[in-house]
Amino acid sequence: MKALAARRHDRRAPALLLLLALLLVGGAYAVLVPSSADAATTKTATADDVATGEKLFQANCATCHGASASGTASAPSLIGVGAAAVDFQVGTGRMPMQSDGPQAPSKPVVFDDEQISQLAAYVASLGVGPAIPTEDMVDPSKGDPANGMALFRTNCAMCHNAVGAGGALSQGKFAPNLWETTPTHIYEAMLTGPQSMPVFNDANLTPEEKRNIIAFIDEQGEVSPGGLDLGSIGPVSEGLWAWVVGLGLLIGISVWIGAKSS
């Protein structure tokens, strides 16, 4: 406490406070802004955005995807993948890829939201492709979670686990956990089929059905009626805990009962 009190009188304190305030505002901005930016891109993408997007693309993506975005041996063509694919891949940090691996995992996002929307605008300008969904299309409160669960079970659970906790694919690839994924990104993933994931077009799962699935995922990974959810990964973790906690405690108590009192 004393040390803190002493520092308060330090003449560098105002500068420090200012810095903190700046960080706070910046952080708040980062947290609050994306939703509005998403909505904006779907409506209006100006020629300016496309031009800036192209510059960003040439600087960051062209090495792999080619200067005209028509793909190279190491990366697919982006013509016709649409703004949704860009928003998903770049918005979850999967692109730009950092290193070769079985698949590109989500990472801290490199670009800010404006840049992402500019990139998306540029790629969308190359060919017709799926657009970024509107707020309304991904609003979990407007979906039917029961129908969502039925669809999720048939179409998604085999890879992403029954409640979206994630699962293994072949050769080191995996289907990620969905609990932290934003509704927009879930929608875009279904629409564009990133990496190993197949596409679920609007005839296969209608926009309304996609929203139902989002409504189902939105309710997962939170409170489990039975207590701790143990990762929601099924009987293996239950068995592990039965041995560690159950047998562990019982054998511990047995040793205590069997030990001679001093």
Partner: peptide, 18 residues
């Protein structure tokens, strides 16, 4: 979490008790 039985779906982490 798993839902009622239906022969079509299956979930990742399909395992029996230990």
């Amino acid at each position: 979490n798993y839902g009622p039985y239906d022969p079509s779906p299956v979930s990742a982490g399909a395992q029996p008790d230990w």
